[in-house]
Amino acid sequence: MDYNRMMIITLDEKSVLFSADAQKLGIHVEKYFEKRTLIVKLFNYIDKKLNLQLASYQYGSWKKKLKDIDFVLLNAHFFSRPLIKYLNRKFPDIRIAVWYSNPVAKDTPVSFYSGLNCELWSFDKSDCENYGMHPNNQFIDQMKLNVTKHDDSYHSDVCFIGVDKERLTLLLELEDYFISQQLNPLIYVVDSSKNSRTDYAYKPALPYSELINYEGNTKAILDIVQSDQQGISLRPLEALFLNKKLITNNLNVQELDFYRPENIFVLTDENHQDIAAFLHTPMVSLPEAITHKYQFEGWFANFF
């Protein structure tokens, strides 16, 4: 595989596809725009409403590389439709894949890409079945999993950091239960447009590097999935590569090749009393053949 002929175009450095591991392999990792100026935002708005491509005039210098590119990977976003139209028109031989890292119900409608020459890929099994999408697992960018702080303020027994997405009530119930069992939970629910209540003091967002510092100093990462989600989030992979236990209410993890009951506790309404014993059970290691597919290189190979 000639990585120099591959390109990822994404929103910004915070995007899951803005991968340091990809850059290390030699893949071109680019942002749509060098800077989203007022005129770019205006063009984005018009493009979305009228299905135009005005923003293509503001794309970054990566446009000059496209003549030497065979494959472009994009994340699902309204920015991607004008770009796909641009690529289809200017570079019709470039293969284009759109990656859904969230369930379709929480992301860009599949109809957004109707009539375009591109492939739709998802981590979510039900979305792949319902919309005819190509399946791929989630991946983790290992170069971002760098735990740099270890002082006591980062330590916990169970850690959840994320936005609400209708999960707050359950998270607070679990927090109360953990405390009742003399455990030290960190339940950090970030203020966002996904808030479900007005009587809770949501927390400011953390840089991903700080999230990793907290997860790197916990005994177990807590993963509470959205009700309509069948694929896994990034938390199971963060637990896998940070060598942490995972507590999750996602029953589908039992079907995964890295599931081991010593490492992953599947949470139900009836088994909370078993959590403390699980936290004291030694973890088991996994072979490289399994973990490789969840690293960027293994994940990217699945597109071919």
Rank of each mutant, 00 (worst) to 15 (best):
C118G: 12
Y131C: 00
P109W: 08
I94Q: 12
S126R: 11
D107P: 00
W99L: 15
L145D: 05
T148P: 06
P103E: 10
D141N: 06
V98L: 05
N146V: 09
F91Q: 03
M133H: 05
C118F: 10
S153G: 01
Q142V: 08
Y113K: 02
W121T: 02
D141S: 04
R95K: 15
N130F: 01
V147H: 07
M143H: 11
N102R: 06
T148F: 04
D152T: 04
Y113G: 00
A105H: 06
E129D: 14
F139S: 12
K85T: 11
E119A: 07
F139H: 09
D152S: 14
K125Y: 14
S122Q: 01
Y131T: 02
A105C: 05
V104P: 03
K149L: 08
P135S: 13
D124M: 02
S101G: 14
S101E: 08
D93G: 07
K144A: 09
R89N: 15
A97I: 05
A97M: 11
V147N: 10
N130I: 00
D152V: 02
K149W: 05
H134C: 08
I94S: 13
P92T: 11
D151P: 00
L145Y: 01
P103G: 07
Q138G: 08
L120P: 03
L145T: 03
V98D: 09
M143K: 12
T148M: 10
K106W: 09
N136G: 04
G115R: 09
P103M: 10
T108H: 02
N102V: 07
F112L: 08
P92Y: 13
T148R: 07
A105P: 02
W121C: 15
K144Q: 11
N88L: 11
L87G: 07
C128W: 03
A97P: 03
G132Q: 05
D151G: 01
S111Y: 08
N88V: 09
V104K: 04
Y131A: 00
E129V: 12
S101L: 10
F139Y: 15
G132R: 05
V147L: 12
V110R: 05
